[in-house]
């Protein structure tokens, strides 16, 4: 089985962001990066499915060459090769541009299964996976918490508002991964050493046109200062009074 796991390098989730002087971009000073949380789950699932069904896992990303750190981490965990589509202006891509570029490369590489995180923890679009599937004309299940494959088809359990949905689909397919799908492994020393010898292709990326113009980036307005209404259960009447008569929501 040919499996491609798509990952994105994003700011760490503990970032307290600052807006740059232009008012339109993130101040890059001091920003640390990591593989997007859900993409780690996609990488893990790719390796698990390979371990079960055989085949090969390619880790694919769009970004600067610095993303080789995150790609090597995936190789250390058990992916077989890495591809970085080098675009130093990757931060300005909209999800459609990203999906189109990935669709082109995936068509070139060939795949039975493409795995992505359900959402990138930077722009929170949750769009690239289903867009990619629509462009490729493939099946796609999003927010997947359980995946079974076999014989050119599969079933996936999806976490939905009303409960868990089960979908049947034929391969090739795009799956976006939700947290409960698996527990990402840590890379061992042996894996880290092996990763250094695994192929990592850096190829230039076709320039992207974005349909999104950033007018303004701002910290959300500060909330009005609140107050401590009291201590212990004795403060409950004061809280109820505030909710009823000040906030008027009870």
């Amino acid at each position: 089985m040919k499996i491609i796991a798509c990952i994105k390098r994003v700011p760490t989730t503990d970032l307290q962001p600052r807006v740059a002087a232009d008012g339109k971009s993130l101040d890059a000073a001091g920003v640390q990066y990591m593989t997007s949380f859900y993409d780690e789950i996609a990488v893990e699932e790719a390796i698990k499915q390979k371990e079960k069904h055989g085949g090969e896992v390619t880790v694919l990303t769009i970004g600067s060459a610095e993303a080789s750190k995150e790609v090597r981490e995936a190789l250390a965990k058990g992916a077989d090769k890495g591809v970085i589509l080098v675009d130093n202006a990757w931060g300005g891509r909209d999800p459609l541009a990203t999906a189109k570029t990935l669709a082109g490369k995936i068509t070139e590489l060939g795949a039975d299964l493409v795995l992505l995180g359900r959402v990138g923890t930077d722009r929170d679009n949750a769009s690239v996976g289903p867009m990619l599937a629509a462009l490729l004309g493939w099946a796609c299940v999003t927010d997947v918490v359980g995946l079974e494959l076999g014989d050119g088809k599969g079933t996936a359990r999806r976490e939905a508002d009303a409960g868990t949905e089960t979908y049947a689909f034929a391969l090739p397919a795009v799956i976006t991964c939700q947290k409960d799908l698996n527990e990402p492994r840590y890379a061992g020393l042996k894996g880290i050493m092996a990763a250094k010898k695994k192929p990592l292709e850096e190829s230039p990326c076709p320039p992207a046109t974005s349909q999104v113009e950033i007018e303004k980036l701002a910290l959300p307005p500060a909330r009005k200062a609140g107050r401590i209404v009291g201590e212990g259960a004795a403060a409950v009447p004061a809280l109820i009074d505030a909710l009823r008569n000040e906030a008027k929501i009870l």
Partner: peptide, 14 residues
């Protein structure tokens, strides 16, 4: 929201 609500992005579409 960007970054899960740590930033508000005001955006125009083409």
């Amino acid at each position: 929201p960007w970054l899960a609500g740590k930033l508000d992005a005001t955006l125009r579409s083409s």
